[in-house]
Amino acid sequence: MTASTSVAFEDPQYREAVVDLLGAIAYGEISAFERLADDAKLAPTLEDKVAMASMATAEFGHVAALNERLSQLGADPFEAMAPFREPIDRFHEYTAPDDWYEGLIKAYVGDGMANDFYREIAAYLDPDTRDLVVSALEDSGHSAFVVDRVRAAIAADPRLGGRLALWGRRLMGEALTQAQRVAADRDALSALLAGGVDRPGLDLAAIGRMFTRITERHAARMAELGLDS
């Protein structure tokens, strides 16, 4: 643990915020693994099934490092994840895909928005924790597969594009709602965003700009898929 990291964790509120954040990300990874493995059943070809299963495996592969860090901080990883089960499960319940292509959009756009939110928060963390979070949110190189499949499907059936664009907007709305709810419900995370004596923070205007950046990155992903945001 670096010197700057040690100093940061002298603040019990900061430690609580980090435990919250790592717990949220860890459960998000487990939930993504379950969902992607389930979505693989919708795959039209064996190649697609294997690609989706590989995405699921990559998500689950990040959990061990997150749980190890939680244990190092003296936290029970399962207790740290527990507060986030309901909001994350609720998001997946509200956004269950009806078909293979909706599942692809959710894997690319929905997960991308969640990762953007966590990366924004990571900017206010000590270097060691920030590096761990960024590593856990790495793409793992699967985006190209999703973009290729969605673009090919729209080229074959242009009407599909309209339906998937609507689906993408729905995902954005649900993801932003859940992200704002989590940030508001967890006092330590709210305090982390507000900053401290030795850490910069966000005022309401800055928080608004943060969500604007997340929305802009969502629009860029939709455009890469050939969809209107």
Rank of each mutant, 00 (worst) to 15 (best):
A75S: 10
E34F: 11
L70H: 01
A136S: 02
K106H: 09
R35K: 10
P200C: 02
D228A: 13
R181A: 15
G162A: 09
E16M: 09
A80E: 00
Y118C: 07
R163E: 15
W167T: 02
N67I: 05
A153I: 07
R35F: 08
E86N: 11
R69K: 03
F33E: 11
V133E: 00
G112N: 02
A155L: 13
T45M: 07
E34P: 00
A122N: 03
P83T: 06
D198I: 12
R199S: 04
G162M: 04
A206L: 08
A153W: 09
D157P: 09
V150E: 04
G61C: 02
G195T: 06
M210Y: 07
D20F: 02
A152P: 08
G141Q: 04
I121S: 04
V50D: 05
A179E: 15
F33Q: 12
D203P: 08
M222K: 06
A51R: 14
G173K: 04
I214E: 02
P44E: 04
R217Q: 11
P127K: 06
A17C: 04
T2E: 14
R163I: 10
E102M: 04
E120F: 13
A144K: 14
Y94C: 09
H218V: 03
L189Y: 08
L176W: 09
A153Y: 09
E120I: 06
V150K: 04
G74K: 06
L42W: 02
F211G: 11
M1W: 07
W100L: 10
V63S: 01
A51W: 14
H92K: 13
K49N: 10
D126M: 05
S140N: 12
G28Q: 02
L137N: 01
R213H: 15
D38N: 08
A188G: 03
E29R: 06
P97R: 01
A175L: 03
G195Y: 05
D89G: 00
G141K: 07
F211P: 11
L166I: 06
V182H: 08
L104S: 03
A58N: 13
M113E: 05
A24P: 00
A40E: 06
L202W: 13
A96H: 13
T212V: 08
S140R: 15
E93R: 11
Q180K: 14
S135F: 12
E68G: 09
M222G: 07
V133N: 03
R69Y: 06
N115H: 13
P97T: 01
